[in-house]
Design a protein around this nucleic acid. Structure first.
Length: 502
RNA sequence: GCCCGAAUAGCUCAGUUGGUUAGAGCACUUGACUGUUAAUCAGGGGGUCGCAGGUUCGAGUCCUGCUUCGGGCGCCA
C-alpha cells in the first residue's frame, strides 16, 4: 500500500505529516493499527484534559494484570510519559480475551483502544474501557523476565540495565534527567548563551583533569615504531597522539572570547581508576563560560542557574519527585525547596579554614591552610556552619589548576566550589587567568609544555578580557535531585572501571 | 590504587554449635473468589547454596585461592 502513495505529492505529504504529528502528540512512534481513535499519551489520558467518553488509543507496556470474574481484566499500562500507568479495563467480550488478554504478563507490549471514562474504582481518576486490545509484543518467558511489579534493588537492576527503564525508578530518573537537561538548555538560551559543541577527541594530553582514554587506529599487536623504538603516533589516524576529552573548557574559552556567553553540555571521559558512588568513566558535563566577568559574577551565575533548574524540575515532574521522596530519599523535595529559598552564603577559603579549626569538631583529616578541603570539611561548612548552600572562594594556588586566575596576594587563585547540604561539592569553577605573562609563569610552574598551549595562549594575546566559568557534573546533579545514592543509576548505561556492559 | 563486606530459587531474604530430603514471600502455573489496585485464598513446578580446592564420618555453614558485586578512602565533576 506504500506504493500507492505518490511521494512527490505535496498535499499527500502534508496530510501524512499531519497524521504523524497527531499521533506524535500522543506517543513517540506511529505504529500499529490505527482505527478511528486519537492516539494519546498516558499522561494526557490521566490529565483530565480529554473529555470523558472520547475514543482514544494508548500504547505501552503492561505493568500488572488483574482478572475479575465479573468478566473483565484490569491491565495497568505504562508508556513512560508520566509516573502513573493507565488502567485498561478489558471486558471478556473482546475477541482475544480468552486466548490473549488473560495470558498477558508484565512487560507485554499493547495497543489498547476504547472509551476514556471516569474510573469506577479507587486509585485513578480515569481509565480506558477497551473495545480493542492488540498485543504487539509478548514476553516469551515470563518467569525469567527480570522486571517484576515489585521493588528491585538498584544493584540488581544494574545487571539488567537494558531493561531497567521499565521500572518505576528508572522511568522517573529518565524523565527527571530530561527535565534537568531541558532546563539547562532553556536557562542558557533564555539568558543569551550559545551552546558550543567542543570536540570529544582531543590532542591535548595534559588537560590536567586526570587519566585519559587513548583514541587510536594503530594495530595494537604491531604498532609502527620510531627509530628509538617508541610507538610512532605520527602514523596514527590524526597524525598525532589523541585522547577522549576530559573537559571542553579550554576550547570553549575561545568561543567565550567572541560570543561573550557560551556553554558546553556533552560527554566527558576520565580513565581514572575510581571506585566510588560518585564517579563514572563516561559522564556528561555542563561548562558555562562568561566574558567580562569575575569570580563574583561566576558565583552569582551558579546560584541563579541551580535555582532555575531545581524550580523547573519541581514544576515539571511533581509525580516523579513525589516517588523519590516516598521511596528513595525523604528530603528529595524539601532540600530542593530549601536551596531555592536560601541565598547562597559566600566564604573565603582562608576564613573557612579558620571556621573549621575553631569548630571544635574532630575531623579524620586535619584542617590546614594550603590543603584541599576534605568531603567531611565541606559537609561541616554547608550542613552545620551555614545550614545551606555555600560558595567557598579563593583557594591556595598550589592545589588548583594552572588556568585559574592568580589573586593579588600571590598565594591564592580565584577558584570557587559550590557546596550543598547532603551532597557536598556540586560545582567547581574559577575566574581564568587572562594575563599572558602570569599564565606563562603558571604553565611553567606546573611543568606543562607551552607548545601544547600555544592556541590557548592566543586568547591572551588577542583581545584578552577577564572571564570565568564553572563545571557541573550532570549525573551528580541528577543524583542530587532524585536522591540517588549511586551515580551509576543516574545514567542509562553506566561505564566504570571494569564495567562497560550493554 | 588501598581497605572492608557480601554471594542460598527469576527477585528479596531466612537457614541455630557443622548433622536426615535447604525454607518463606514475591514472580510463574492450576483452581477458588472479587470493579480489581504490588488484589486475596488454596495447591503445584522451580536450587550443582558464585567457582576451585581443603578440613571433617558429615560442609549452605569452617579454612585457602579465584571471580563477581557492594561500600569506604584517595582522585575528581
Amino acid at each position: 500500500m506504500q506504493q500507492s502513495i505518490p511521494l512527490s505529492s505535496p498535499a499527500l505529504a502534508t496530510e501524512r505529516i499531519g497524521r504523524f504529528k497527531q499521533e506524535f502528540q500522543g506517543m513517540s512512534v506511529a505504529a500499529g493499527p490505527i482505527v478511528d481513535a486519537k492516539v494519546v499519551a498516558v499522561k494526557q489520558a490521566l490529565s483530565g484534559a480529554i473529555a470523558p467518553g472520547s475514543r482514544v488509543q494508548v500504547r505501552g507496556w503492561v505493568r500488572t494484570r488483574r482478572d475479575s470474574k465479573a468478566g473483565l481484566s484490569f491491565v495497568n499500562l505504562s508508556d513512560g510519559s508520566c509516573f502513573d500507568a493507565i488502567q485498561v479495563v478489558a471486558p471478556n467480550t473482546l475477541a482475544n480475551y480468552d486466548n490473549e488478554i488473560v495470558r498477558l504478563t508484565t512487560g507485554c507490549a499493547l495497543i489498547a483502544e476504547g472509551e476514556l471514562v471516569a474510573s469506577q474504582g479507587k486509585g485513578q481518576s480515569f481509565e480506558l474501557l477497551a473495545s480493542r486490545v492488540d498485543v504487539v509484543g509478548w514476553v516469551d518467558d515470563p518467569e525469567t523476565y527480570p522486571i517484576q511489579p515489585k521493588p528491585h534493588s538498584p544493584e540488581f537492576l544494574r545487571e539488567v540495565a537494558h531493561l531497567r527503564p521499565r521500572t518505576n525508578l528508572f522511568g522517573a530518573v529518565s524523565r527527571v534527567r530530561q527535565s534537568i537537561a531541558s532546563a539547562i538548555h532553556r536557562y542558557f538560551n533564555d539568558n543569551g548563551f550559545c551552546w558550543i559543541n567542543t570536540p570529544i577527541i582531543t590532542g591535548s594530553d595534559t588537560e590536567g583533569a586526570g587519566e585519559m582514554f587513548r583514541v587510536s587506529t594503530l594495530d595494537m599487536m604491531n604498532p609502527p615504531r620510531t627509530d628509538q623504538g617508541a610507538i610512532d603516533f605520527h602514523k596514527d589516524f590524526f597524525g598525532k597522539e589523541t585522547f577522549l576529552s576530559v573537559s571542553g573548557q579550554l576550547n570553549v574559552e575561545g568561543y567565550c572570547l567572541a560570543l561573550s556567553k557560551v556553554y558546553t553540555f556533552g560527554p566527558t571521559f576520565r580513565a581514572e581508576n575510581s571506585h566510588t558512588t560518585r564517579h563514572l568513566s563516561e559522564f556528561w558535563m555542563v561548562e558555562p563560560e562568561i566574558a567580562f566577568a569575575d569570580l563574583d559574577a561566576n558565583a552569582t551565575l551558579a546560584e541563579d542557574f541551580l535555582k532555575f533548574i531545581f524550580k523547573a524540575v519541581l514544576a515539571e515532574r511533581p509525580d516523579d519527585m513525589a516517588f523519590f521522596a516516598d521511596r528513595v530519599e525523604k528530603a528529595a523535595i524539601s532540600r530542593l525547596e530549601s536551596i531555592i529559598a536560601t541565598p547562597f552564603a559566600r566564604i573565603d577559603y582562608t576564613d573557612a579554614v579558620d571556621i573549621l579549626k575553631k569548630s571544635g569538631k574532630k575531623f579524620d583529616y586535619a584542617v590546614e591552610w594550603g590543603a584541599d578541603l576534605q568531603t567531611e570539611h565541606e559537609r561541616y561548612l554547608t550542613e552545620n556552619h551555614v545550614s545551606g548552600p555555600v560558595v567557598v572562594t579563593n583557594y591556595p594556588e598550589k592545589i588548583k589548576a594552572f588556568y585559574m586566575r592568580l589573586n593579588d596576594d600571590g598565594r591564592t587563585v580565584a577558584a570557587m566550589d559550590v557546596l550543598a547540604p547532603g551532597i557536598g561539592e556540586i560545582i567547581g569553577g574559577s575566574q581564568r587567568e587572562e594575563r599572558l605573562d602570569v599564565l606563562d609563569r603558571r604553565i611553567a610552574q606546573f611543568g606543562l609544555d607551552p607548545k601544547m598551549y600555544s592556541w590557548y595562549r592566543d586568547f591572551r594575546r588577542y583581545g584578552t578580557v577577564p572571564h570565568a566559568g564553572f563545571g557541573l557534573g550532570f549525573e551528580r546533579l541528577v543524583c542530587y535531585v532524585c536522591g540517588l545514592a549511586n551515580i551509576r543509576d543516574a545514567i542509562p548505561y553506566p561505564r566504570a572501571p571494569g564495567s562497560a556492559e550493554f
